[in-house]
Write a protein that binds this DNA or RNA. Structure first.
Ligand SMILES: [Mn+2]
Ligand SMILES: [Mn+2]
Ligand SMILES: [Mn+2]
Ligand SMILES: [Mn+2]
Lengths: 224, 224
DNA sequence: GATATTTATAAGGTTTGCCTTATAATACCT
DNA sequence: AGGTATTATAAGGCAAACCTTATAAATATC
């Protein structure tokens, strides 16, 4: 049943699942970009994954996980987010750094270890960055949220989650108090796709449009 | 400073250190045997390690860790044994299984993680199998013990440590109550390198000569 | 000292996962 | 429908770790 795949394979599966928000087809180019490999390499790898029945590839359309592929991806993400909780809550490793550490540990973790960790942690539901932890069966419950870049000035929001995560992004966000649970007020949006001026806990910050697409919030109030 | 090496490199370093009890030269054949690779592969790898100044190889004599190599090996062993403690004490993973799980985690662990884990665990000194945990600086304190195969009938001992560890060995020992802390009485030794008949907690067990070389004990009494 | 064993090296091969450059096929857009 | 952009594939290469088979060199043993 639970065959273990190598790190590379697992990163592809995980990334495909993280990119497929609405179960749609993922362009190999998008995959290559996120994994920082050439499109040719990504194509080769997708073919290999296809042979192992982990993905389905429709040429010129994109890649999609199969049932097994999706299940395995969920297990890796589950293990990743549980490790993040452990690292942050019990080992006091900085919020911005747990992601990259967990990204290594996840590949050294089998199902038994994941479940033992889950029990130890008391079955948490979200990672330190607000993202939901898939259940043992692979089910993932994502809260209804909006990305910061779609909102208008005058709104007050609660930061819910950061997605997708990356070391540099989290480092930057940490230094600007952008963390789940914090309240954020949109003061102003500069023209020409300019920065979003916000206030988080009395302090003003300027956030770029691109970064704003990674910040998922819920609106909790308006100035008017 | 703390460059990270790949899993293969780390396993070679770790194995060399574990085999060098008295700082002597390790035969490449011994290394190959324990790592379950051909001697040719081990030789190639030793050459690569030599280029990286991690080992010194004296042809027809053996391999030895350099200062850096030895330090890095200690870090891996430290991380391994700390993980074992965590897995056994906090996640309730069976005594015989923590070794193989830790052998994967150790390669996904950097110094910061190791030290955070050490602090979380309260700076333990031994792994669940009784082996000493190297200190952060690499210093390793090994208790004075004897291997079971060198002792005579009539003696009562305390089991101190199992070394070196392997999944199959630990599985076998667990099923025979051979664990650190348990008392063992040597009832009889069969001739022609036959099994050692022992009693552990009222129950009799027969242990082979080869297995006995992995069981380190201290004598605590004699029948006479 | 001759022989057997151990150890080292040489030669050729495989797999995985990456790379670049170039070309072909398809999709998208006006 | 035509042109541009995207996507796929072909071709050739590289490095790390493995493998086997064969030979050479050193060491150990009688
Ligand atoms: Mn990862
Ligand atoms: Mn996270
Ligand atoms: Mn290992
Ligand atoms: Mn151990």
């Amino acid at each position: 049943m639970h065959e273990s795949f190598n790190e590379s394979t697992e990163m592809y599966l995980k990334t495909i699942r993280e990119l497929s928000i609405d179960n749609d087809l993922i362009a190999i180019s998008a995959l290559a970009r996120r994994l920082e490999v050439s499109t040719v390499s990504a194509t080769e790898m997708v073919h290999r994954l296809e042979e192992h029945k982990l993905v389905e590839h429709t040429p010129y359309k994109g890649v999609q996980l199969t049932g097994i592929g999706c299940q395995h991806a969920a297990e890796i993400i589950r293990s990743h987010r549980l490790w993040e909780r452990f690292l942050a809550d019990h080992l006091n490793i900085p919020w911005a750094r747990v992601h990259e550490v967990a990204c290594r540990l996840e590949h050294a973790t089998d199902t038994k270890l994941t479940e033992a960790l889950d029990a130890f942690l008391g079955h948490p539901t979200r990672c330190p960055h607000g993202n939901p932890i898939p259940q043992a069966g692979g089910v993932l419950k994502t809260a209804v949220t909006t990305t910061l870049n779609t909102l208008k000035p005058g709104l007050t929001c609660e930061i819910i989650r950061i997605h997708p995560e990356s070391a540099l992004l989290l480092e930057y966000l940490a230094s600007h108090d952008v963390k789940p649970g914090n309240q954020l007020h949109i003061d102003e949006i500069a023209p020409f796709n300019g920065p979003i001026m916000v206030t988080i806990g009395e302090k003003p910050h300027a956030l770029g449009q691109e970064i704003a697409t990674h910040i998922f919030v819920t609106v909790i109030g308006s100035d008017a």
